[in-house]
């Protein structure tokens, strides 16, 4: 990961809207966390890029949907980059990394298999840190209108006249 990969991103640009090819999260070291192909990036101003990367990985491991790109998870957790949440995040991530080190990994993010990371999350499942992140994701992730089509959900329908002429009873396999 080099600076080169981030060309085209402005500091104001929290997230690019372009589609991301899946790829591991990367800390750029420049106040950004970004996809390796620079398809999206989150700017962090208060918490560290490493902490943001941990939150992103947590989000993916808590609600893993392989067909949902990283950028949607990034939207769901970027709110933790704030003065009020700073200590909360720092302490939570430190505790999670301590659990990872006790289990023989360099850090939570460094544990390569989801299965291993899930075990680490289970070990902190009852903490306010985990519970807050999880609860926040329920709306933070699933209430993004851009996510709905990935699951087939069609959302608002009044403006299109409902489904009376658009397949409310179109099931054909029964």
């Amino acid at each position: 990961m080099t600076k080169h990969d981030l060309r085209g991103l402005t500091r104001r640009q929290l997230l690019s809207r372009s589609l991301s090819a899946a790829g591991a999260l990367a800390v750029t070291g420049a106040g950004f966390i970004a996809a390796p192909n620079a398809a999206w990036a989150v700017e962090v101003t208060t918490i560290t890029p490493e902490q943001m990367a941990t939150l992103l990985q947590m989000a993916r491991d808590i609600y893993p949907h392989d067909q949902v790109a990283d950028r949607f998870y990034a939207v769901a957790v970027r709110g933790y980059d704030s003065e009020e949440q700073k200590d909360f995040v720092a302490e939570g991530v430190a505790a999670l990394d301590a659990a990872a080190q006790a289990a023989g990994f360099d850090s939570y993010v460094a544990a390569g298999w989801e299965e291993d990371r899930v075990k680490l999350l289970q070990s902190i499942e009852t903490t306010p840190f985990f519970q807050t992140i999880r609860a926040g994701l329920v709306t933070g992730l699933y209430n993004q209108k851009e996510v709905w089509p990935i699951f087939g959900y069609q959302g608002e329908s009044f403006s299109e006249g409902g489904y009376i002429d658009r397949g409310f009873n179109d099931i054909d396999w029964l």
């Binding site: 609600y63 893993p64 949907h65 699951f151």
Partner: peptide, 27 residues
Amino acid sequence: LGLPFMAAFLNPGGWGRGFTTALDHYE
């Protein structure tokens, strides 16, 4: 329920693939 409420109510507090593979097939 729509997807947002399904996520909140299908198994409140639930997480991990047991939960998300259910939502994967929401349609």
